[in-house]
Amino acid sequence: MASKMGKRLIGIAGVAVTAIYTAGYIYTMPSVNAQTSSGMPLSPTNNNTTPGAAATAHSAHTASKSSSTTNSTTSPKKKPSTSSSSTAASSSAAKYKNGTYTGMGTNPYGSIALTVTIAHGKISAVHITNWSMHYPQSVVDPQLPQEVVQMQTYQIYIVSGATASTYNFAQAVYQALQKAKA
């Protein structure tokens, strides 16, 4: 059995670890803040930030599974996809049936369930009904639901620092909109 490590040594080592952590935190602060505040538009020309990548992945996923409760074992990747823009475009251009539709997005980080309300063929409201993500709900709510209503699409801006939550959210909205399609 090892003898006990001295309190002084523990203190010094603890301060060193805290200093390293603080250095990393401060160093990464500008990039995290910039990404979080500006958000990156999900441009079809930029594969790294393609809107609806989650939804595209979801649609491929649902080809074999009717439920979205099965998760991917990898982190949400922003996969290059030329089909996503066309899928997204057709989805946003489509007319929807009035009513309230549910959608769910799941990945290894957790799950999001929400309802999308369609009035007069347009998205009138999005409400998150269940939140089980690593990030606090406040990181994306009400920002993302408002974006969906304003932009009338699930192609929302990625909230950097909450990428997985954004993708899950987009996936859930996409699923609800698929149900609402006329």
Partner: peptide, 11 residues
């Protein structure tokens, strides 16, 4: 990775 940054891991 763009989806998993050191900034994320430190927060």
């Amino acid at each position: 990775l763009p989806s998993d940054t050191p900034g994320d891991a430190l927060r």
